[in-house]
């Protein structure tokens, strides 16, 4: 398989959610060849240079599938840093920062969901799983933002007043729902 074929196959498998630069594909192939994980075959009549995977490459690939991803290598989380700085910067309302991010993230989730719902590729499981991954990652961010907001409230609220008959009903409703969740 040569570079353009690799790119097309990759993008088809991931539903176009991770577009590749063709230069990046060939740079990666060169590195793989250097590490003896792939080897070049004879150039085709149309000037394309196909590659095939080596035994070492298969072993490396099997290892990659078998090894959980480490999140330690991820770049710094800009959102977490933004919220941390917002807390210590005078004049910044952290709850507004949290809400702006939450609304933007949910908007992304709405679009992912719409894509999934409106797809005419119901049998394309690979594509669906990739979109699902995006939905669940975004959901995790929203849950973390909810947690941040609750923490902010807890740290800024005065001591709880005694419950009134009016508030008890609402509180019980909410508590009941929390308990069943």
């Amino acid at each position: 398989m040569y570079g353009y074929q690799l790119r097309a196959t990759f993008e088809e498998s991931t539903g176009g959610t991770w577009p590749l630069n063709i230069g990046q594909v060939y740079t990666t192939l060169s590195r793989l060849e250097r590490d003896e994980l792939v080897r070049p075959l004879a150039e085709s009549g149309t000037g394309q240079l196909p590659y095939e995977i080596t035994d070492s490459g298969r072993a490396e690939l099997a290892m990659w599938f078998a090894t959980p991803l480490s999140h330690g290598d991820r770049p710094r989380d800009e959102l977490a840093i933004k919220l941390a700085l917002a807390l210590s910067t005078p004049g910044v309302d952290v709850s507004v920062v949290v809400q702006a991010q939450r609304a933007a993230t949910i908007r992304k989730m709405q679009e992912y969901t719409r894509l999934k719902y409106s797809t005419d590729r119901p049998a394309d499981l690979a594509w669906k799983l990739v979109v699902d991954a995006m939905v669940f990652q975004a959901e995790a961010e929203v849950r973390w933002l909810d947690h941040c907001e609750a923490s902010l409230l807890r740290h800024s609220s005065p001591p709880m007043p005694k419950k009134t008959p009016g508030s008890a009903h609402e509180a019980e409703n909410e508590a009941g729902r929390e308990a069943t969740r």
Binding site: R102, Q110, Y112, T113
Partner: peptide, 30 residues
């Protein structure tokens, strides 16, 4: 409470202390 469920909506409104503080609609060019 679940963002993943709210994502099925055309619009999402956010309530805080009895007020609508924000609304999230879909993007123009998904």
């Amino acid at each position: 409470h679940e963002a993943r469920h709210a994502a099925w909506a055309d619009r999402v409104v956010f309530l805080r202390d009895g007020l609508i503080v924000d609304t999230s609609g879909p993007m123009d060019q998904p």
